[in-house]
Design a binder for these strands. Structure first.
Lengths: 232, 232
DNA sequence: AATGCTTAAATTGTCGACAATTTGTGACTG
DNA sequence: CAGTCACAAATTGTCGACAATTTAAGCATT
């Protein structure tokens, strides 16, 4: 670990060894950024042409996108980009709450002292970034996910890590990206992160889980009102 | 809902509309039943021949099996049937504990009165089956999962339901099936199920979640010792 | 005899063409 | 004029062949 990066790029940097995986990454970005609109129909031959590959690997890419719920597929009837409604996001946030709560509990049990130290430094960097930009931290989005990502890794639970990082965070990124700017919650979020980190440092599994769950359910309350205001 | 079925078949009964999906189901059964041994190599051309299809749909089936973790895949290097070690099962049970805890909480909040009544009747049927067979309930396996399945449905959380039913339960079934007979825990399990159902009927979200988590973590302690004894 | 390189076999990745299914269109009938 | 059936277009599902990559085996070299 270099310790210099304030944001961790969770994507693979080295080119994927297969066409299908590279295309999967491309389409994933296009969906998250909104270049492929929500609910728009996916026609295999069109996309194959657009990305310059044949239908075989493209189909695999689509299947992988279905796996992480960015695409909805119906046999013989084709596939569409997912449409994020409030109902679905509530499911996501509830699942995230329980999973990350467990992750925080496990992290409190298993994290090494040097990891805990490193986590603390990460939060210092976030604090610095907040005061520098006077609360309008642009990278708060990624920085926030960065903190949660570290907890997930520290849990040493592969299943949970994979679901959070590969699926839930993607959907949350997409939702954030396509819902305009969020109110600057950077300072309160950081405070809560600090409390969680402190509980972990104290090896207080119970408290770490409770604080993490409260943190996420609080975030959901905000997102919920935004989504509801949007659709009225 | 008919109310007559004591065990719910969670698989699709009507033939799947596509070759890939049918083959997916076949291979899935073969893996869970142990006809395809853990860790054995999967060669696409061989399996395609065995199931009488071409490599295209077979590849899709394999991808779906990878998705639910019954197969592990490495690009260009082929795929193998998963090997269930203690480490992995611990991840599974920890994830299950948090997810089903949340499901029980949501069920306590959202379940309709008639659903609660039906759940109670299901437990009566389980009790009858236990006394009939004098504790040696053969279908306890499925019956147990049946109860948990109902809670997952009642949570009305699609994401959680899909992960539990499509992924975690499959792995647990496979683990049970390939670890010989488990000690008859039918009576204690039923008692705990009754307590959970009672908490749900009382709309006590907090208690429902706690009891469900305790129930599952207790089950893990048993499974854990079995797995450890096995590998020594 | 052990190690490293070269080559051959086996296996996966990719492609384009064909078959099966669904969806949309339009004529026909009540 | 509404509803239904048949037909045609578009799209997905399936297949077999070819290309790229990994794994293994065999040979030469130290």
């Amino acid at each position: 670990m270099t310790g210099t990066a304030s944001t961790v790029n969770t994507e693979e940097l080295h080119e994927s060894p297969t066409l299908a995986l590279r295309t999967f990454d491309s389409i994933k970005s296009d969906i998250i950024n909104g270049e492929l609109a929500q609910g728009s129909k996916i026609v295999e031959s069109d996309l194959a042409l657009k990305y310059g590959i044949s239908r075989g690997p493209l189909r695999e890419a689509i299947h992988r996108l279905e796996r992480i719920k960015l695409i909805v597929r119906i046999p013989h009837a084709g596939s569409r980009v997912v449409t994020l409604d409030t109902r679905m996001m509530e499911d996501i946030y509830n699942a995230r709450e329980s999973l990350e709560g467990m992750a925080a509990r496990l992290a409190a049990r298993l994290m090494s002292d040097v990891e805990i130290e490193s986590l603390s430094k990460l939060l210092d960097q976030h604090a610095a970034a907040i005061s520098e930009t006077d609360g309008k931290v642009y990278f708060q989005r990624e920085g926030d996910i960065d903190f949660h990502y570290r907890i997930a890794v520290a849990s040493q639970n592969q299943w949970i890590l994979e679901k959070l990082n590969g699926e839930l965070y993607q959907l949350i990124r997409m939702c954030r990206h396509q819902s305009g700017q969020f109110p600057s919650r950077a300072q309160t979020a950081l405070d809560q992160h600090r409390q969680i980190a402190a509980a972990i440092a104290r090896r207080d599994e119970e408290l770490a889980e409770i604080l993490m769950r409260r943190h996420i359910s609080g975030a959901w309350e905000i997102v919920k009102t935004i989504l509801e205001d949007q659709n009225d």
